[in-house]
Design a protein around this nucleic acid. Structure first.
Lengths: 157, 157
DNA sequence: AGTTTTTTTTGATATAGGTCAAAGGAACTC
DNA sequence: GAGTTCCTTTGACCTATATCAAAAAAAACT
């Protein structure tokens, strides 16, 4: 899938769980004023989907796109339900993957909630060292809850 | 379990998953300057644990405490592993519960990341209507990533 | 290689919310 | 029911980061 391809738009029901074999993706949403807010980055070896939409089959709040030319595997929610109900072991893997994701989101929440802009950037470098220099600065800034001007000033030092 | 009882301290490995039958709990951590930051509230019918610690059996970053006299059920991680490996259906329930929690944390993250203090308080009222008036204001303020003075001023209006 | 588009940097100014300090209230304790 | 202790409110002032605007740099096309 080429760079900058939308996999899901806001409002669509996300039918697939994606796996990033190569490349990179991100999820984002639009604020009321139209600005994009990056919600998450998905690097090599990660599962990527619109969590709210895929698991509840409800309209997605997020967009999902590739940020680089990528190789993406996918499975539909019905295929996955079949797989998980057929194999207990797969159900377990899915549970563990969910918990791993949960742990990461909790970590990010803590970083965002009570740290300065500079500390949040350091968290980013630690959590996504590979991503930090591959995507536009504005995407990272919104992911970290700051403006790109602020991030640019932080990077200068 | 009486009010204000610590179930887990920072540094301990959390051996149990708790279920709140009655009452309420919260998880929190201490910032470098010693201030408490509420990480999550657990109301009636919710599972409560130190996510990072319980699922990875690593030292907990968080404290877990009751905020009211409560009835709490618990299961040890070894018992739970047995249960989940014995019954596929239980494994599935655990997966779905994890995803539900993941969805909620993602929602909170979005609320915290790009909303004003007032909007965050409104999110709190929507997500935890029952809790908002039962716990000290300082706990809610830190949960929402603001000071208690700010929350007090917001509430006045 | 030159033109357009996108991204990043820089500067000036504004503001939401933090910090500090102190005064009121509520809620336990003996 | 007076004395602690804890919790909430209020006021004055300050700072980190946002906003706005424009220049500079880099990347993407033709």
């Amino acid at each position: 899938i080429p760079k900058n391809t939308l996999l899901i738009r806001e409002g669509q029901v996300c039918k697939k769980l994606y796996y990033v074999k190569k490349g990179m993706g991100r999820s984002y949403y639009l604020k009321a004023d139209g600005k994009e807010v990056t919600q998450w980055f998905f690097g090599v070896g990660k599962f990527m989907t619109s969590v709210d939409s895929f698991f509840q089959q409800s309209p997605s709040l997020y967009y999902l796109e590739t940020l680089e030319d990528s190789i993406i595997y996918s499975i539909s929610n019905t295929q996955m339900d079949l797989l998980l109900s057929k194999y207990h072991k797969m159900e377990q893997i899915a549970r563990l993957a969910s918990i791993e994701m949960l742990t990461k989101v909790v970590n990010k929440l803590n970083a965002i909630q009570f740290q300065t802009a500079r500390e949040r950037y350091e968290y980013m470098l630690a959590e996504f060292p590979d991503i930090s220099y591959r995507v536009p600065l504005g995407h990272i800034a919104s992911y970290l809850g700051m403006t790109q001007e602020t991030l640019s000033r932080i990077r200068k030092n």
